[in-house]
Amino acid sequence: MAENTYYTLLASLPHINSLFDSKITPISRIQLNRRLSMLNHDDRRMLLSIEELMHWSMLESTIDESHLIQRTARLFESLPSKELKELITWRLDMRTVIAALRRKKSGEQPPTIEQWSFGSRYPYIRRQWGHSTLGLKHSFPWIEEAGTLLQSNHHGELERLSLKIIWDYLNQFGLRNKSNYEAVVLYVLRWNLVARWTTYNAELALEKFNQLTANILVEAGMDTVYKKTSHYHESEVQR
């Protein structure tokens, strides 16, 4: 697809205003896919791979860590542009940093295998494991805040912080790419973030959690515990 033909696709996509104020996605996934069908086969396939890489929910659940690292390396090599490589490297580095902070919190030692993650900074992080900010305070100014939120078990706030950081980075990236393939990728990544944010719902999450707990207790033959917990959860919801 020649660069000029991205104009039609990009102009057909509704503007995404903001992340945290969004109540619904500006366009449904079905409609988005229909518009993305303007891309040629190679562009579509590449976009799908990038989405899988950036959003693990799209990957099959059985995939193991080493396979994921190999797959990422393979896809990274096939990326068509330097700009996209830069974007994905940044995102993978961020993921590695958060993973390292989580591992440190659970008391794990530095990884023993050399290729323990992906991105460009994992060897450096392994060497700086003892440091509270992994020696990346200047490259990732948010790392201290993320570490504090993780230590205090404020996982919801950590999620919000990471979404905000990604959103800001994508916006910055968007200033340099207005009408090319990178702009299409960027739109889809931003759409995915909005989709992720708009599906967060505390009440639904609690209901799902209660259902799962109930199913496990009933399966284990602990009906009395189930009744007590369901009564407890109902009163919690009412409160």
Partner: peptide, 9 residues
């Protein structure tokens, strides 16, 4: 091309 895209939206 931009006009055609906008008309879809």
């Amino acid at each position: 091309q931009a006009a055609c895209g906008a008309m879809l939206d």
